[in-house]
Structure formats: structure tokens, C-alpha cells
Design a protein around this nucleic acid. Structure first.
Lengths: 152, 152
DNA sequence: GTTGTAATTGCAACTAAGTATCAAAAACGT
DNA sequence: ACGTTTTTGATACTTAGTTGCAATTACAAC
């Protein structure tokens, strides 16, 4: 998951506050976990990390905060092709949508941005008269290290 | 969900048998439910319909059969943006991939095929050296009937 | 058709992910 | 500092899906 050094720390906090939401200690903690994550985390991983910073945080609060972030379009929810059970993973919504590719053999997740994807979204908005709010393009297959021609 | 009249009934059955799998009465029943579905069904809807044909079918068998169909690439699993809980929906894999658009207000699901999408997949296979097995592009937003400029 | 074996099923118990309720606690405008 | 409103944590619950295993069934070989 890209984690550019230029990313403003605390941006999620600022966004939520500007929307008039109360900034509690728990929310700040959970947001900082999400913001500083180097990989895609699921709810229980987020809880575990949040508890290192504030041991009293409840998992319900994690679910509620993730729901809040989703509703405000600040994080995206991913399945990552359900390679590891039915978990959902979360990432800050990037400035430009990207595609997630999950290797069915080694489990590695790759990301990819594409002008064709942007054009496809434009086509959908125009031709289907559909106002896009959120997109999720996940692809399962074999990465270059896992695709001998014999790949099953 | 498109259900062309030209679709061969029993095609899923034939596919599974040609792969050397045993064709049990339960599997035949579940496959016929999936094949004749006019909408996207979730596991419990599939169970309910299968039980109308064979009241003794167990939900475990439904899950197992869906897993089998997924592994063989004969059905695709969809979230439909989780508009109705955490269910998964299933559809026969179409000949050409399509995009699912879920209206966040009225819940309607639309489908869309696009040459740009096909090109995007080609780009990914080439530039990322990634052999695509399955794709899932889901879009949440507002359909033309639900997008007054005031849509929240 | 019968037989033998391996795959499949149904049952029951289980896990895992997420949600609802509600009293107690905390945020934050005044 | 006060008071209202929001948020939290605890508990209990729901829903989706899985596991283990004995009983049953498919189907290939005869």
C-alpha cells in the first residue's frame, strides 16, 4: 500500500473534525492506526494496534469508527479476493482510485493505477447516467513469480 | 441479471461432470437453481430454492457446492457493495466480464459490459505480468432515478 | 447387476465477523 | 464549569460460513 512521506499526518482527523464530528481519544487512536498502516489491515488487526496505544479500546468502537470513515468516504473497504477468510481490509481512500491484484498462490497484493480505469469510470458515468461514489476493482490471478505455464 | 434463452440448460452440470466430479442429486438441484436464477442470489436464497426441489438439502451442501463452482471458475461471487449486510451473491460466470453498479439509494443493481474494461484487463496482464483468473468490478453510486443534484 | 472404494452428504457443534441495546462517560459550545 | 448531545464499553446477540465425522451415495470394475 503506498504510504507517501508527503501524506499529511492527521489528515483523517482533520477531515472528520471539519465535518463537525467529535474527536475522541479513541477515534484519534484508531485514525492514527489507519493512517500509518503500511499494509492493508482488517478490523481485528486495527483493534490490536489501537490497543497498543490505548488498551481500553473496544472492538465495537473500531467497527463503529470504520463505519464512520466508510460513510464519509475516507477509507475504502476491500475483500482482497477473500484469500484469508471473510475479513474486510481497509485503506485510506487514495486521491486516484487503484486496482488491487491478489495472487491466488502467494497471496501478495499489488496495486495499479491506470488511465484506462479512469476512462472506464467516465464512460460509466456518461453512458449509464450513474453517479459514481465508490469503486472497487479486485483481480485474482497469478503474479509474475507464481505463474509458471503450469500454474493450476 | 441476463438470462439469455440461448443458454444451454444443464451447462454447469455438464462442465462439472467433464471435470470428473460426481454428480449427485443435491448438486444437480443446486446447480439448476443457480442456472435458472433471474437475479443474484445469496447462499440462503439458493438453499431455500433448492429445498423446494429437495427438502432434505442441507445448507452445508450449498456452501460446499458454491465453493466447488467458485474453484472451478463456473460462478462468480459478488458483494454488490454490501447494500444488504455481509451476504455474498452468486452468478454464473458470463462469457464476457461485466461491471456491477449498485445504487446506494434504491439498491438496484445494473450491469455493464465495456470494451474499455476488456482493454484495461489486457493492460494489466501485459504491464503487470499478472495472469488474470477472476475479476470483480463493483461500483457504488446513484442511478439516474436516484441522483437529484441534491443526492447526499 | 453386484461389489468396493472413494467422494459426498447431513448433522451438530463450532468459529468468525459484525450488530443492537443501553447505562455510563466524554466532548464541546456556551 | 455547565448542560446537552454524542460516543463509548460491556454484554448479548445475529448472521455467515466452517469443521469433524459417521452414514450414505456415486460410479468404476467386475
Amino acid at each position: 500500500m503506498p504510504m507517501p512521506q508527503t501524506e499529511t499526518p492527521g489528515r483523517l482527523q482533520a477531515e472528520l473534525m471539519s465535518r463537525g464530528l467529535r474527536m475522541t481519544h479513541q477515534r484519534r487512536t484508531i485514525l492514527s492506526v489507519v493512517e500509518t498502516a503500511q499494509q492493508h489491515l482488517d478490523a481485528s488487526q486495527i483493534l490490536k494496534r489501537a490497543r497498543k496505544l490505548d488498551p481500553n479500546i473496544d472492538r465495537v468502537t473500531v467497527y463503529r469508527t470504520l463505519g464512520l470513515l466508510k460513510r464519509h468516504g475516507l477509507v475504502d473497504e476491500l475483500d482482497l479476493m477473500h484469500l484469508q477468510g471473510e475479513k474486510h481490509f481497509y485503506e485510506r481512500r487514495p486521491q486516484r482510485d487503484h486496482i488491487h491484484m491478489a495472487c491466488l498462490r502467494c497471496g501478495k497484493i499489488a496495486e495499479f493505477e491506470s488511465a484506462l480505469f479512469d476512462r472506464l469510470k467516465g464512460q460509466i458515468q456518461r453512458e449509464c447516467e450513474f453517479r459514481i461514489v465508490v469503486t472497487r476493482l479486485e483481480i485474482g490471478g497469478y503474479c509474475k513469480h507464481c505463474r509458471p505455464s503450469s500454474a493450476s
